[in-house]
Amino acid sequence: MSVADRLPLGDAAGNGALLLGAVCVLLAAVFALTPLVVSLPGSLYVFFEVAILFAVYGVLVLGLDLQYGHTGLVNFGHVAFFAVGAYAVAMLSARDSFAGVSLGLPWPVALAGGVVVAALLGAAVGATSVRLRDDFLAVATLATAEIVHSLFVSFEGVFGGNVGIGSVPQPVSDLAGDADTAMLATLLLFGGVTLFTLAAVTRLTEAPYGRVLRAIRADELVTRSVGKSVLTYKMQSFVYGAALAGLAGGLFALYTGAVAPGYFTIQVTVTVWIGMLLGGAANHRGVLAGLAVIMGLRLLSRFALGVMPLSADAFASVRLVVVGLILVAVIRYRPAGLWGDAEELGVDT
């Protein structure tokens, strides 16, 4: 019944995604490394911008889905890992930032560093918190995100305060011939990374390992009684999710060329959560589709300013009221999401 199932990459172990990802990355390399240039219609720029952001958030939502959809861990501070990854990459690779630390290391080293730092934070938070009950884990992770955010704002000398870290290398833009080509190459490259991630998490969850995760979600006691160390599995799932968020953060920093606390607000967490629930947790392609729907809605609603009989001031508020009500409606009427499996998630429809 689901649209996602009919997508042309519906095979068991995510090979399709892997292949498509490889094609994307290859194409990205063609645009970035050869003198080939493209010119895109300006009116589509905004869609490309949001599509690139979608690819970045796509990696985020896949990691979150591993934690919540598959293992049942309610991580409400996902943005913290995203932010930590981005800041680590920015601080390691930036050259002469206006504020904060900039070490000027090569960007691949920095990107690896970003993933490691995010994973370490994930391990630290996980080791202490994954044993908490659902909603308390939500609060603990939320509090972690708030602490991380205020550290970034407060320690100007290290993190650059509200200005953040600038002068981060932008490898794709540097390689590509012009802005349009860079935009397309970035989209292809990030899309490729998202597809690789999709393939990886699909393999992970299709394997016996994934069955254990889902068993934990469904009934922890039973899982424990058959001799699986629930805590170890939970920890691993949490750290994988955090590392993926770190990767997403690193890509984001290398794309925008700057990081600042304003990019990493609770808004990011809310967006990926809505995307995941909308699409249907525990369905990898579903959560990506859900994220596409919510980000698409937010973007398209911006174009509604012209056709709505409202002042721009009122429109800005109405837009957010509608976004909030959509979230409420989805949870009420499609608790398993648009593409989710209600039975597997254990929710009543």
Binding site: A138, V270, L327
Partner: peptide, 25 residues
């Protein structure tokens, strides 16, 4: 009421966004 804590938590987040902006409006 019957769906459990997490859907209720998320509903309240959505309601919060909507109410806050409605009040602003």
């Amino acid at each position: 009421n019957h769906t459990g804590p997490v859907p209720m938590l998320l509903t309240s987040i959505g309601l919060g966004i909507a109410l806050r902006n409605l009040i602003r409006l």
